[in-house]
Amino acid sequence: MAHIDYYFSTLSPFTYMAGTRMEEVAAKHGASVTYKPLDIMALFARTGGTPLKDRHPARQAYRAQEMPREAKKLGLPLTLKPAHFPTNAAPSSYAIIAAQSAGGGDLGQLAHAFLRALWVEEKDIAQDDVVRACLTAAGFDPALADSGLLSGAETYVQNLEDAVRANVFGSPFYVVDTGQAFWGQDRIADLDRHLAGDL
């Protein structure tokens, strides 16, 4: 059975646009998934990326066109400049890490709930009430927002180190135990074909 290490940031609009398609592909092929939320700004600093605010105006202008186009193609609502972007990704990431350890809910739905809260509902995903609401909506105990903060912080740091070792440089990023890696929501179809043995 294949395994996917799923590296992502809860701040990434393109991870939001992935929806739960990766989870559908993994289920189709019986692949297991480890969710590895990480600090995208720290990843950029380690792998040659540039924070949005520091990108050339031409790149920012293209992003402003590309994001609504992609969202429209996927049939997803999107707020181009949400009220709480950027925000602190650590609380939502810690919640995902705690939920993965605790089990009992739907991790794909949880990750997407945070991303939707940021990019559609314009909520601050660093706030405790938002974290609890997302946990509840995905079938997890909202008390996970309070538990495992130390281990969550340690895992969050370790996820970054794992990402750098795995040559990850963006979000979403899917690394299969075959050694093949796929960057971006527009590569989920290629991930599907790879797991099928066609690519």
Rank of each mutant, 00 (worst) to 15 (best):
residue 66 E to D: 13
residue 67 M to T: 05
residue 69 R to V: 01
residue 69 R to P: 03
residue 70 E to F: 04
residue 70 E to I: 00
residue 71 A to L: 05
residue 71 A to E: 01
residue 72 K to I: 01
residue 73 K to H: 13
residue 73 K to F: 12
residue 73 K to G: 12
residue 73 K to P: 03
residue 75 G to T: 05
residue 76 L to Q: 11
residue 76 L to D: 04
residue 77 P to Y: 07
residue 77 P to G: 13
residue 78 L to Q: 06
residue 79 T to R: 11
residue 80 L to N: 02
residue 81 K to F: 14
residue 81 K to H: 14
residue 83 A to L: 13
residue 83 A to N: 12
residue 84 H to K: 02
residue 84 H to Y: 04
residue 85 F to Q: 06
residue 85 F to P: 00
residue 86 P to H: 08
residue 87 T to N: 13
residue 88 N to C: 12
residue 88 N to Q: 13
residue 88 N to H: 09
residue 89 A to W: 08
residue 89 A to I: 04
residue 89 A to F: 09
residue 90 A to W: 15
residue 91 P to N: 12
residue 92 S to V: 06
residue 93 S to Y: 07
residue 94 Y to M: 14
residue 94 Y to A: 14
residue 94 Y to P: 09
residue 94 Y to F: 13
residue 95 A to C: 14
residue 95 A to Q: 14
residue 95 A to V: 12
residue 96 I to Q: 07
residue 97 I to L: 15
residue 98 A to M: 12
residue 99 A to L: 01
residue 99 A to K: 06
residue 99 A to G: 10
residue 99 A to I: 04
residue 101 S to D: 15
residue 101 S to G: 15
residue 102 A to P: 11
residue 105 G to N: 15
residue 106 D to M: 06
residue 106 D to K: 07
residue 106 D to F: 06
residue 107 L to N: 10
residue 107 L to W: 08
residue 108 G to W: 00
residue 110 L to S: 11
residue 110 L to H: 09
residue 111 A to V: 11
residue 111 A to T: 10
residue 112 H to E: 06
residue 113 A to F: 10
residue 113 A to C: 14
residue 114 F to D: 07
residue 114 F to H: 09
residue 114 F to S: 03
residue 114 F to C: 07
residue 116 R to T: 10
residue 116 R to H: 12
residue 116 R to W: 09
residue 117 A to Y: 07
residue 117 A to Q: 08
residue 118 L to K: 05
residue 119 W to G: 04
residue 120 V to D: 03
residue 121 E to K: 10
residue 123 K to L: 06
residue 125 I to A: 00
residue 126 A to N: 00
residue 128 D to V: 05
residue 128 D to L: 10
residue 129 D to T: 07
residue 129 D to A: 12
residue 129 D to P: 07
residue 130 V to W: 04
residue 130 V to G: 09
residue 131 V to P: 06
residue 132 R to F: 01
residue 132 R to Q: 06
residue 132 R to V: 01
residue 133 A to Y: 03
residue 133 A to P: 06
residue 135 L to A: 04
